[in-house]
Design a protein around this nucleic acid. Structure first.
Lengths: 148, 148
DNA sequence: ACCCATTGTGGGTGCCGACCCATGAATTGG
DNA sequence: CCAATTCATGGGTCGGCACCCACAATGGGT
């Protein structure tokens, strides 16, 4: 019966591996919930950036999130079709397109954040609240150190 | 000049996001080093499983690592071409192919583990040794709880 | 007025991971 | 001994992500 399903210890000993693995399931589970809404992770990131920092020229959006400008255009186009963002030509520099989140967009973002928190509760179930804070703090420091 | 590059706080507040992000860079950096050796992550996982648990029928390998059997065949084939594993028909059940790691394979695996540890040092640089232990412990518990 | 840089956009490529199906060889169960 | 099952394998699909180039519109500098 019981098929041996344990993971190789020589992998489990590597924090690189543990990080990659937990990160992947986090990403996958969140992505699944976004897919139900016909969105991908970049859509959420763009919405968040606009909500947090206000309207952006599309170029700046790309730079901030380090996405390819060409891909940014596609994501913004899709968000526009859903009514989550508005695009207007910058009157001062008519090359630029100013992207701003709409009310609908803010509502959608709030829902997405709720989804993310739900995933987080699933995932971090075995950790105490104090540990979750520690974890978040350490990950934050790691990312900060990477200049991300 | 200074382009605003800060990440949206409403994302950074989500541990799901932090996990996904750190996990991704961990995965990416390790994958880069593997690519230099014309390998991918699954190759390393298969080698590790064979080294830790001894020879496997290909099917069991697939079940243990939850890869598609078809993909397993391809990975094993590539490892075989490099001389890292040996495949022999199981005389007891000639449908099965027994896969075993070779001496060369063990050497290669050791090198890959060293690479992984190097990545780990890069990544976790801002953490104290005690914190790294905590981190590894927490991630281990999270994965265990997921039944992975 | 002219050249050059910037911006947005469309189109395309390549890689990877996950998946699925069909087939042939071998084994097992009734 | 026949039918159903298991295994390995080759082939293909699909979505996501990152990247790149070309082009058209616009703006800035001199």
């Amino acid at each position: 019966m019981d098929q041996p399903t344990a993971q190789p210890p020589s992998l489990s000993a590597l924090t690189t591996y543990l990080l990659s693995r937990t990160g992947k399931t986090a990403r996958t589970r969140l992505a699944e919930r976004l897919t139900e809404r016909h969105l991908r992770l970049w859509h959420m990131a763009v919405l968040a950036a606009l909500a947090d920092f206000g309207p952006h020229a599309q170029r700046d959006l790309a730079r901030r999130l380090s996405i390819d400008p060409s891909d940014t255009a596609k994501v913004v186009e899709e968000l526009g079709a859903l009514g989550y963002v508005e695009r207007t030509r910058d009157p001062a520099d008519r090359r630029r397109v100013l992207v701003a989140v709409t009310g609908t967009g803010r509502v959608a973002l709030a829902e997405l954040q709720a989804e993310a928190e739900a995933v987080q509760d699933e995932l971090l179930a075995p950790l105490t609240p104090a540990e979750r804070e520690q974890l978040a703090g350490m990950l934050g420091r790691v990312l900060a150190h990477l200049g991300i």
